[in-house]
Design a binder for these strands. Sequence first.
DNA 1: CTGAAAGCGCTAACAT
DNA 2: ATGTTAGCGCTTTCAG
Lengths: 340, 340
Amino acid sequence: MGRRRPGTPTLEEVAVHARVGRGTVSRVINNAAGVKESTRRAVQRAIEELGYVPNLAARSLAGRRADAVALVMTEPDWRQFAEPFFSEIVRSLGDALTDTGIQLLLTLVRSDTERQRFLEYARGGRVDGVLLMSVHAGDPLPDMLAEARLPTVLLGRRSGEEYVSYVDADNIGGARSAVSHLLRQGRRRVATITGPLDLYAAQCRLRGYEEALAMAGLEGEPTRVAESDFTAESGRRAMAELIERYPDIDGVLAASDTTAAGALEALRAAGRRVPEDVAVIGFDDFSLAQRTEPPLTTVRQPIEEIGRAMIRLLLEEMEEGAVAWRHVILRTELVVREST
Amino acid sequence: MGRRRPGTPTLEEVAVHARVGRGTVSRVINNAAGVKESTRRAVQRAIEELGYVPNLAARSLAGRRADAVALVMTEPDWRQFAEPFFSEIVRSLGDALTDTGIQLLLTLVRSDTERQRFLEYARGGRVDGVLLMSVHAGDPLPDMLAEARLPTVLLGRRSGEEYVSYVDADNIGGARSAVSHLLRQGRRRVATITGPLDLYAAQCRLRGYEEALAMAGLEGEPTRVAESDFTAESGRRAMAELIERYPDIDGVLAASDTTAAGALEALRAAGRRVPEDVAVIGFDDFSLAQRTEPPLTTVRQPIEEIGRAMIRLLLEEMEEGAVAWRHVILRTELVVREST
DNA sequence: CTGAAAGCGCTAACAT
DNA sequence: ATGTTAGCGCTTTCAG
């Protein structure tokens, strides 16, 4: 594993070449104020001529920062990775970081070995902060990071008592307004296909569903609830189950648009007309853009806001040294696409 | 962006605490040989008691290595990210790295700014090597990395004259054997849905298709070729096009299983029976595992081998300092799933 | 505005 | 087998 990169010029060589002190070169490459314009140019020419590139290890050591943050994916179900929601989040985080000079690193943590490796990496100072997504209920990683006092921001809470900083969508409100919308259409036999219930977000959406029913004076029944794992296939299965147990169903709140698409197929296979007989609403997971399905009404999650908010919280924690946790809950929006 | 992590014990403090020299502590944390068992234990206890974590910036600076490699995704079409092939590759690379102590970092390069940022990151020594996937014909990044003498391995060539180290599948041979298989079934009107033709792999597959026809004394015609971008939707479109231009078609080589699935839908929509009227073969992109479609015959790409080979080449280059490029072409395998 | 000097925390070569 | 020492290349006071 020996590595040598000979002939790499150092800051000192640049200084000599430009006939200035090392401090001046440092100021120039860091765009620090207080350098005469002519000197600055001289240094820049020297940098060009020598092909100088700052050694980031040295910079890290002296400056005590890495200028990098990690986005960790702990999803035990690795398929999650292939979901559009995921890539949209990554894109929005990338956008939010563009003019900070901070490098975004994605890392996978699938086993204990990998968790340990990553912890050493992060605690060793190779990143200034950590972003976590799709954290399941019992995941210990957030606590380990918190204990190491590493700035950390979660996408979604692990539970109602989450303390580590997080950004979440208003899942309860979103589900409630979706179901209320169905009820306002005169539908009275509304079911729901939830996400995996060890995800707090899925629990919240279920709660929203129940609240909306309660507000309308209706009763939620366990038989009207089926669980999925956000995939189309599981949506298909869950829907088939619901139709069987609950034949006069007339509305469905689905875990995601992908799940909703699966549900649609099952409904059609069972001879139901959509949305005349049964209306389906899913949580937006950004799969619709690539789908040819008829437009569904969806609960829109504000992806851009999520990315921006996560980065903002992380930068704040980096600034002041992780002395407090902050929480942001973003409003969701019901986007009505069909008119029944 | 100020960052302080006070109270972090250093190697020196561990040495004092354990009443040994710093060198000894260094040997212990690096599992170096030649430390008496009792001292080793004493040092380990001191490490525990102080909660010592090595500073990786310092280690990098002194040891001239980062113990990390980057997997860069340059895909202009960001959707690629959501493809199963992609996540399978990531998984296999992760597996190949598990017992090397090397951290895998995924980074996205979607713009010039990001390319520049990444280059500084890599040239700055934060990674020991770079893996690139889905590199398009004109991508300058491999050359820039080569110029910086950074160990680099591509997944797939940019062209037939690629010099930078790469691991590729035998696309020509795979396509040829798939088409030959169709011809052996007595099919004589075989078409192909290619991938994006600025990808060398797609060109190779097209060549394999043509070679198989030529070997059978048949002529390839441009009208029997349609282009896709690996998605199901584009497969559907391409297939519809082919049927229109070429109604008596009886076999198709598709760019991927996902494309093939789209093609199937189009075929059925046009009233063709599969595989009786038309047989479809796709290149395995690992989407089949999550699909309920009837099993297709596929050209299997050896994912595990690809990951292992890429890591092996990279480690070799890291070892000897990128003085030579190496190329590996892995055999593909026709997996026959239906019997017609 | 600029130069000099003191570390940052570790590895590796050299003593012992 | 273990301690000592000299850097690794940069940032950041502190003088000037």
